[in-house]
């Protein structure tokens, strides 16, 4: 079953002044449980594609279906609700809420979903333990290392039980040890819980662990390779 399906996605910035074509027609399908890396040089359109798949941006042309729902027809507010229920985000700069503890950060999206307190508590503890931070639940982001913060971000992305996780350069700010640790956790969650991960990355360590590598060049997919690792 496809969790993401796009047809002829195009995105042009500044169409009325100096048009910049970021995507020139992307056809892409990602199935449930895939562990996919989108790679390519700077300016190839990776982040734009991720933003469009994640419902953060709209394509200039083309059709996009996420979780078998045509998201191009959703209003801005409907898109916010859709993202909350269906997509988990992991950002390059972690982007945790600085005034909340690790537990509160993970719990936050579930609060927005109006989940019960018992459910929130149980899932938060479960996820923080899964990412190896069971002993850091009361720490604020400023008290955690970059790797730990990114693991909290992964736990937060997983908290609402999304259809898939989108991670934009998740290891760009991490050292080797933290990167390996984070990749281990994501690979395990992917394998054991069949969670779909889509990364945009430059990082060879991430590319090496991905089972599918899609290369974007000048706004089009140049290669789409299945890897066995």
């Amino acid at each position: 079953m496809n969790v993401i399906h796009t047809e002829n996605i195009k995105k042009t910035y500044n169409p009325d002044t100096i048009p910049v074509e970021a995507l020139k027609g992307v056809d892409l399908s990602i199935k449930q449980g895939e562990f996919t890396a989108i790679v390519g040089p700077s300016g190839s359109g990776k982040t734009t594609l991720l933003n469009i798949i994640g419902g953060l941006d709209r394509p200039t042309e083309g059709y996009i279906e996420v979780g078998q729902k045509d998201i191009s027809k959703l209003s801005d507010n409907q898109l916010i609700d859709f993202r909350r229920e269906n997509i988990g985000f992991v950002f390059q700069a972690y982007n945790l809420i600085p005034v909340l503890t690790a537990k509160e950060n993970v719990e936050f999206v579930m609060l927005l979903q109006n989940r019960s307190e018992d459910e929130r508590n149980a899932r938060t503890i479960e996820l923080l333990e899964a990412v190896g931070l069971g002993d850091k639940i009361d720490s604020r982001p400023s008290q955690l290392s970059g790797g730990q913060q990114q693991r909290v971000a992964v736990a937060r992305a997983l908290a609402p039980k999304p259809t898939f996780i989108l991670a934009d350069e998740p290891t760009a700010n991490l050292d080797s040890k933290s990167t390996a640790n984070l990749l281990d956790i994501m690979a395990r969650l992917n394998k054991e819980e069949n969670i779909t991960f889509v990364f945009s990355t430059h990082d060879q360590r991430v590319i090496d662990r991905a089972r599918r590598v899609i290369t974007l060049e000048d706004g089009v997919i140049s290669t789409d390779i299945q890897q066995h690792n």
Binding site: I80, R83, R84, F89, F108, V109
Partner: peptide, 16 residues
């Protein structure tokens, strides 16, 4: 601004 963007990205409605 960035933080507001992140909060809406992860699903916080604008009114909240």
């Amino acid at each position: 601004e960035y933080e507001f963007g992140v909060l809406t990205a992860i699903g916080m409605q604008r009114n909240k």
